[in-house]
Nucleic acid binder design. Sequence first.
DNA 1: TGATCTTTTGTACGATAGTACAAATCACAT
DNA 2: ATGTGATTTGTACTATCGTACAAAAGATCA
Lengths: 236, 236
Amino acid sequence: MVRKPTSKETARKPNMREAILVAAEELFATNGFNAVSVRDIAQAAGANPGSVTYHFKTKDGLLLEIYRRHCGPMNLRRSELLAAARRVRDLQDRLEAIVRAYVVPAFTSGSDLAGGGARFTRLRAVMSAEGNEVARKIIAQTFDDTSHAFIDAVHESLPQIPRTDIVWRSHFLLGALYYSLVTPDRVSRLSRGEADGSDAASAIEQLVQATVAAFQAPALDQAAPARRRPVVGSKI
Amino acid sequence: MVRKPTSKETARKPNMREAILVAAEELFATNGFNAVSVRDIAQAAGANPGSVTYHFKTKDGLLLEIYRRHCGPMNLRRSELLAAARRVRDLQDRLEAIVRAYVVPAFTSGSDLAGGGARFTRLRAVMSAEGNEVARKIIAQTFDDTSHAFIDAVHESLPQIPRTDIVWRSHFLLGALYYSLVTPDRVSRLSRGEADGSDAASAIEQLVQATVAAFQAPALDQAAPARRRPVVGSKI
DNA sequence: TGATCTTTTGTACGATAGTACAAATCACAT
DNA sequence: ATGTGATTTGTACTATCGTACAAAAGATCA
């Protein structure tokens, strides 16, 4: 259904501002922040470079707006799913539901288009890798609450595991999640075509299954108390 | 021991070429490829911008040389450790040894300085996130053999798990490994100071423990055959 | 239609990017 | 001491960057 645009949202093209946002998301998520120029974004969106300045003032402002419009809906979705997961009776099922509440919105949430959630999550992965300052500030103040709530929920399901271990394992989960979105082709390649790394449904199921098992692993202290371990010092 | 430099390796400073390589590694691994200028690198190495051109011709050439000097030693170390791991009798111990053979060199290997392995692995993580072309070519032709050997070894220890699942889980391992090196501070923050994300020994033990459990999880097909799963379509 | 506001276009400016290159400087064998 | 080759320095060139800004174009409503 094609809707006649109202006065407030467009002049010439049907929502040029939105087109710029989507183009920027895609380009930033694929090539990183610094590798993409404002002119690249404008061209991909079919806009004029000056139009980007008009709508978002600066390149940082554009990135900021991308985060702003995704963070809210995504965390809301996660909260809802987490609340529902907490109400699951069976402990094993509950843990799986909690993990799923964390993973699914990262792949599918998003205010608008299909794949918007995955695109934004991939963007976060790339910005995190590049140590982007704008992203770092937003992330710490927006996602840490959600992460803590997730960690607490997992910890309630696995009270015998120290919180520290759960933090590490949830960190691994986020890393695996990010990497799955960054280089899905590697999965296809290493499986010799048997798996499709860019199939979101497969990725989610595999990730949930593996993560639940990782969370349920024995705690580190009691894991292998009598074993020799290779000495590996040095801070990272 | 301070060695008198021979004519072939230096003129003014004690190995300026090496200083440039290390500085570039550090800067690229922290800020990404495009965010770092040749002038930044030269300054960090105490060199002149022209000196970078002299030794490595182009910025891409510098990145290429960084990969060249690390890939060989790291894969060699992995092969040795993997061969040793394959000889472990006990199946559970063998799986853990195999995972360790994959993880440990990523944190510690390196032709030279302490932390060189971690620095290079972090660099790979960042280049992978940025979709760097130079890196992509080298990676595919250098690390895929190692990855396949690793996957095969795991598969031998867990013959009842489909190879596809093992590929996914080893992919998650690499993602978790990368992310641990990219944002170790997040672990410290979320654990409220109880864990040190930049402690390589902890990271390795936690990662090995979690990954072994993930590999041992039941295969996806037989995991929960009678369960309803949320329908989540859409390619990434 | 004409006035007014929003959006888009086109262009320009200063800063910085990668790289080339000649001159200066060094280490070392003779 | 001097010549030679390797390395470092300094500088300059062109391209592209983010951004500013005036003019053009479109939309809206009296």
